[in-house]
């Protein structure tokens, strides 16, 4: 951890105030990403991966409230920055791409104009030159015949092409940090690999830090330098990829790895981990939200969780870890 962190998130807590109760979606989430590094965040559906990303980007739904923590990007705390400051930072310093790229693009605006919008906003590009620069961006993300494609609408393009356009939009202002939220879900396998290669290429070329959110532990193992495992709104373990696979310390992580011997299965298909995520609206959530599923539960587990600092080389949140 000699490299300066690009993003340092500490004790991030988020809740959604809904009609059916308060959803404690994130509790004390901490992690760090260094410049040029790729951090994967893995976890079951509903574990809070997207909410983490939205909170950092400042684009939570109106019902969502950050109730504590900091997210330092350079000298700026993204969680307490004003709206005006955030809209300067978003897209310029920290950008994001989404799953289901077709839905993430404006359906009635040509993709060239959507890229141009961002260029005009962030890239100091004069309005007149923007369309031309947008075509260059399309070329940079490997879209064939970019000048013709710039005039196309999202519905006229394949999912993979749309994701390339999303990437072009995200990197238009050369951000120092990219969050990719399941960027390849819904794409076919070959396109998945191509998109992932494109992201790696772009980040290694520019020293951009990447947070890669996925269900897929195997994919995370291939692509990430470090992995953070989330469960029910907690980061329960975070370590370098190899370290995590060879010496998992949290029982949940160990179960996950054991359940993916060939590292090919998808977390959603795992039936072998007993129980399900607890209902995050409960008022009697135990301090360790895994304890009700955990075979290694002890009496200490009802104490507040021990947490190593966000920058620890191998962070684990457990009273009775393996090893």
């Amino acid at each position: 951890m000699s490299v300066a962190p690009a993003l340092l998130v500490q004790n991030l807590s988020v809740e959604f105030r809904t009609r059916s109760g308060v959803v404690k979606a994130l509790e004390s989430v901490s992690f760090t990403v260094a410049k040029g590094e790729t951090l994967a965040i893995v976890g079951e559906s509903g574990s809070g991966k997207s909410v983490t990303a939205y909170a950092v980007m400042g684009i939570l739904d109106p019902a969502g409230h950050v109730t504590g923590g900091t997210a330092m990007l350079g000298g700026l705390d993204l969680l307490s920055a004003s709206n005006a400051a955030m809209s300067e930072v978003r897209g310029r310093e920290i950008a994001m791409i989404f799953q289901n790229p077709r839905a993430a693009l404006n359906p009635i605006r040509s993709v060239g104009r959507q890229i141009a919008d961002v260029l005009i906003r962030h890239g100091n590009v004069p309005r007149k030159e923007a369309p031309e620069r947008a075509v260059e961006m399309l070329r940079a993300v490997g879209i064939p015949d970019p000048s013709r494609r710039a005039k196309a609408y999202p519905f006229e393009m394949s999912g993979g092409m749309c994701q390339r356009v999303m990437i072009a939009i995200a990197i238009a202002a050369k951000p120092s940090m990219l969050i990719a939220d399941e960027p390849t879900t819904g794409l076919d396998v070959t396109t998945q690999a191509v998109i992932m290669d494109l992201i790696s290429e772009l980040s290694s070329g520019t020293g951009m830090a990447t947070i890669f959110i996925t269900h897929d532990l195997a994919l995370a193992a291939q692509r990430a330098d470090r992995i953070a495992v989330m469960h029910a709104g907690h980061v329960i373990e975070c370590a370098a990829t190899r370290e995590l696979f060879e010496r998992p310390r949290h029982p949940y992580t160990a179960e996950l790895i054991a359940a993916t011997p060939d590292r090919a299965a998808n977390l959603d298909e795992l039936a072998s981990i007993p129980g399900a995520l607890p209902d995050l609206r409960r008022t009697d959530l135990p301090p360790c939200r895994y304890s009700e599923r955990c075979p290694r539960k002890m009496t200490e587990c009802d104490q507040p969780l021990p947490r190593s600092p966000a920058v620890a080389a191998h962070m684990v949140a457990c009273w009775n870890p393996l090893r």
Binding site: M57, I59, M96, A104, V118, R121, I169
Partner: peptide
């Protein structure tokens, strides 16, 4: 959401 994420005003 993605338009907001890309920092458009």
């Amino acid at each position: 959401r993605s338009a907001r994420a890309s920092g458009l005003s």
